[in-house]
Amino acid sequence: MKLLGLHHVSILTGKAERNFQFYTKILGFRLVKKTVNQDNTESYHLFYGDAKGSPGTEITFFDIPGLGHTYPGIGSISSTSLRVKDTNALHYWEERFKEFRIQHGQIEKRNNRNTLAFQDFEGTSLVLVADNGEEGVTAGVPWDKTDVPVEHAIIGLGPVTLTVGVPDKTVQVLTDVMGFTQSGTYPSLAGDFPDIMVFSTGEGGSGAEVHIETRPDLPRMRPGRGSVHHVAFRVPNEEEYDYWAQRIAESGLMNSGKVERYYFKALYFREPNHILFELSTDTPGFDVDEPIETLGEKLALPPFLEPRRTEIEAKLRPLDLDDK
């Protein structure tokens, strides 16, 4: 059994309102679920994705007002990629970033793909990556209710980069436990350091890759606003989820055991460089409690939290996302 690819990436934000404005109004994502952090129901959890909230397209944020700065370093998910159709889309985004004064780099090659690096307002390191007809994990469905033309829309997650001091044990977990295979290398973006290693799973392509950057010169990352909390990988269904839960347990990795998130089933564990991984099922999906047409419009709570709605809403800070 193979993991299908990336499921979602979860990041910390100190300002949900501005986060919503950036990811929906500038990047053109759809808000597919407005809910709470199930482990801390006084905090919002916002999910952005494609038109259907498809697995493999979701970038999510935990809202923690007053969160401090991130100090980059090892033991981190140091960048998150977002897929677009082709290099023409990268040129569109280059001009859009200039228009909105978004910090960005130049179009350049990474792992033989055209890419464009940029940052959100909290310093989150993001990279647009062009598919250009490459085979692999299927892209998502563009959200057409935005001013971003559908032919240039963000259509899914691309590779995540893990920055570590010593890669060997992380590689071992990816390959021996999680079934990834090494599919290439490319030069370090930081100068005279080991080549970045590329690992793939499932059907491959940018939606199914993890890149490992070795940086023994860096201190350990100190998380804050804009830092990535965890990366989740796709498990197609509950039967295979049971298999992976057993496999992770037998590996000796400390893990959460099975966790019911209602929209998907999850399992969490830290690999040897202390980066948090999650395995998440594709099913049942975000339309299990809301019609596709109105995803993300109301505060959604899973059934096991619904009896506490009045209490939860009373403790949440007001959050007005309209026209922000």
Rank of each mutant, 00 (worst) to 15 (best):
T175G: 06
G285H: 07
Y241N: 00
G226I: 11
P187S: 07
E271Y: 01
H274P: 00
V198L: 00
M254S: 14
G179H: 06
R247Y: 03
G285M: 10
Y241H: 10
D217A: 06
E209T: 10
V210W: 02
I248S: 01
R220P: 11
R215H: 10
D192Q: 15
E278L: 00
F193V: 10
E213W: 09
D217L: 03
P167M: 08
H274L: 12
P167T: 02
E240I: 12
T161M: 08
Q246M: 13
F193C: 07
S200A: 12
G202W: 06
S280W: 01
D176V: 11
G207A: 07
A232M: 03
R270L: 09
E260R: 15
N255H: 15
P216S: 00
Q172K: 14
S251I: 05
Q246H: 13
Q182R: 15
V166E: 12
D242F: 11
T201G: 06
P187Y: 08
E213F: 09
G207R: 05
D176S: 15
R247H: 14
L189S: 11
Y268V: 02
V231H: 00
L253T: 13
V235C: 12
P194Q: 12
I196A: 04
E213P: 06
V235Q: 05
L267H: 11
G179Y: 08
M221D: 05
L174A: 01
L174T: 08
V160G: 08
S188G: 09
I275G: 00
D192G: 04
E239C: 14
P194Y: 10
R222C: 08
F269V: 08
E260C: 14
L189R: 12
Y186M: 08
